[in-house]
Computed example of a mutant assay.
Amino acid sequence: MASERVWKSAVIGYGGAYNMGMAHARQMMEAGFEFAAACDLDPARAEQASQDFPGIRTYTDVAELLAQDDLDLVTVITPHNTHAELAKRILASGKHCIVEKPMCIHAEEADELVRLAAQKGLMLSVYHNRRWDDWFLTLQDLIGKGVLGDIFHVEMFFGSYQRPRDWWRSDKQLSGGAFYDWGAHYVDWLLRTVPGPIRSVRGFVQNRVWHETTNEDHIDCILSFENGAFAHVQQSSIARIGKAARRFLGTKGAVVDNGDGQLTLHTEENGVQVESKIPYVPSQPMAYYRNIADHLMNGAELEVKPEQTRRVIAVLETTGTSAEAGKELPVPYE
């Protein structure tokens, strides 16, 4: 039977970038939560939250928000280097927790959060909402139908030749590095596509042009899987020429995606090579929070599990440590 009680939610971080605080709040409400409170260190942003959602409680002190016993769920929307500590405080206060991606910066922090949530009997999840993007849903449908066979090689690219913006996401101490932003989504997509443990990661990091920022200019992450599959994820802010955004090779078929509303599928029919255009199925932008609500209120299985997102952080971090060591390294928590 569905829960009849009111579940109250809140956000920590109502910053103006991308209006993420407002976006999370609206998705919470649409999924069935009462959006009850917001916290931001900037009094002006806290005031903006109260204007956007009249009647909510606003705070500029995290401790005051976490002292509210009627809050059930708190989402963290702050710079990456603050995620781990805030998530620990939320869980310690007895509240369920969502963290914007990336989960944190270090795999050891991720493991601590997984263990703490389990000890407290609380939900911990990371906002990997991109699992419900149109192109990825289309790819997963093809894989599920057996059209591609076993995926044995993946290439992913994102970037261009462009100076990074002057903001915290370009500061490695705060962001974790360039790979921790969109790279978190790309690695999550990859690990949802290629099953099984990772054997090793080899990272290559270059800083050649944008010396006024501390993030890396160009990153290559090469993953080897226990089942023999191989993947290459590349991110760059100094790539004057790009390539296919995503390329998947399987034993029965292959897919190329350029983000243009359709997948290009290469297969064989009666011994003849066939190229097909597969239109994207619609994205499901509300699927993440709907699953959170269904999990907490009705006991449904949690889609984005913390153990999965811990693997993402392990890959991101190992990419950097491998580059520093100059050799491939195993990935923690495999």
Rank of each mutant, 00 (worst) to 15 (best):
E4P: 12
Y14I: 08
N19S: 10
A31R: 01
G32W: 00
E34V: 13
A36I: 02
C39E: 11
A44Y: 03
A44Q: 13
D52C: 08
F53V: 15
F53G: 14
D61N: 12
V62R: 04
D69R: 10
L73M: 05
L73A: 05
T75Q: 14
P79Y: 00
T82G: 02
E85H: 08
E85W: 04
S93E: 05
C97Q: 03
I98E: 06
K101N: 03
C104L: 04
E112C: 07
L116T: 11
A118K: 12
L124P: 03
V126Y: 00
N129I: 09
D134F: 00
F136V: 00
T138C: 03
L142F: 09
K145T: 06
G149F: 07
D150C: 04
D150N: 13
H153W: 12
M156I: 08
M156F: 00
S160W: 06
S160I: 12
S160E: 14
R163W: 02
G177R: 03
G177I: 02
W182E: 05
P195M: 12
P197V: 08
G203P: 07
G203M: 11
W210N: 06
E212Q: 15
I219K: 01
C221Y: 02
L223M: 15
N227S: 08
A229I: 10
V233L: 15
I241V: 10
A254Y: 07
G261Q: 08
L263R: 05
T264W: 01
L265I: 07
T267R: 12
E269H: 11
G271P: 09
G271Y: 10
E275I: 13
P279V: 10
V281Q: 09
Q284I: 05
P285R: 01
Y288W: 15
R290L: 14
A300Q: 11
E301Q: 14
L302K: 07
V312H: 07
A314H: 07
V315Y: 07
T318Y: 06
T321W: 13
E324G: 07
A325Q: 15
Y333K: 09
